[in-house]
């Protein structure tokens, strides 16, 4: 059974997403909407992460080593200029996709296990992850033409 392994992957992904939102909020403080919404989303992901920990413990006996190769190297440190914001939002979007897919996989397992608590948790967190994705997509769409065509 690989459930624990995947929970580990999700746990790690939510942790990364928490940090990434925090990082972007901090880095783009001059963009007030980015700073505030990314702080909010960081808090959401931290909350999701906390919720997962209970299940990681519950299913820990079967846990195998975390697959390192699934870790991503996003948010290149030296990004700057007008493109940096768009690229950072782009990477956040990718990370939310990673998290979203993990929740889908976990929810499928929860259904098979008849684990109502895990199912409820996955449903709740997946819905909020989608709201993170939706916001990022809207903001990327807004920023794209100005960044690619006008900004120097």
């Amino acid at each position: 059974m690989h459930l624990a392994t995947y929970l580990g992957l999700l746990e790690d992904s939510e942790k990364q997403l928490t940090r990434a939102f925090e990082h972007v909020a901090d880095k783009h403080r001059d963009e007030p909407d980015i700073e505030q919404i990314c702080q909010k989303f960081s808090a959401w992901s931290r909350n999701h992460h906390g919720q997962i920990l209970g299940f990681v413990e519950k299913y820990s006996e079967e846990k195998e080593d975390e697959p390192d190769k699934l870790k991503r190297d996003l948010f290149a440190r030296n990004r700057s200029g007008a493109l940096a914001l768009l690229r950072d939002l782009h990477d956040l979007w990718l990370l939310t996709q990673q998290v979203q897919l993990c929740w889908t996989v976990i929810r499928q397992a929860a259904l098979g296990l008849r684990d109502e608590e895990l199912k409820a948790c996955a449903t709740y967190c997946a819905a909020r992850t989608k709201r993170q994705t939706d916001w990022l997509l809207g903001r990327v769409k807004q920023a794209a033409p100005q960044t690619l065509l006008v900004a120097e």
Binding site: D33, I37, K40, F41, R131, Q132, D134, W135, L137, G138
Partner: peptide
Amino acid sequence: EDLETGAPR
């Protein structure tokens, strides 16, 4: 829109 985040539907 999402009234908490402003994400367009």
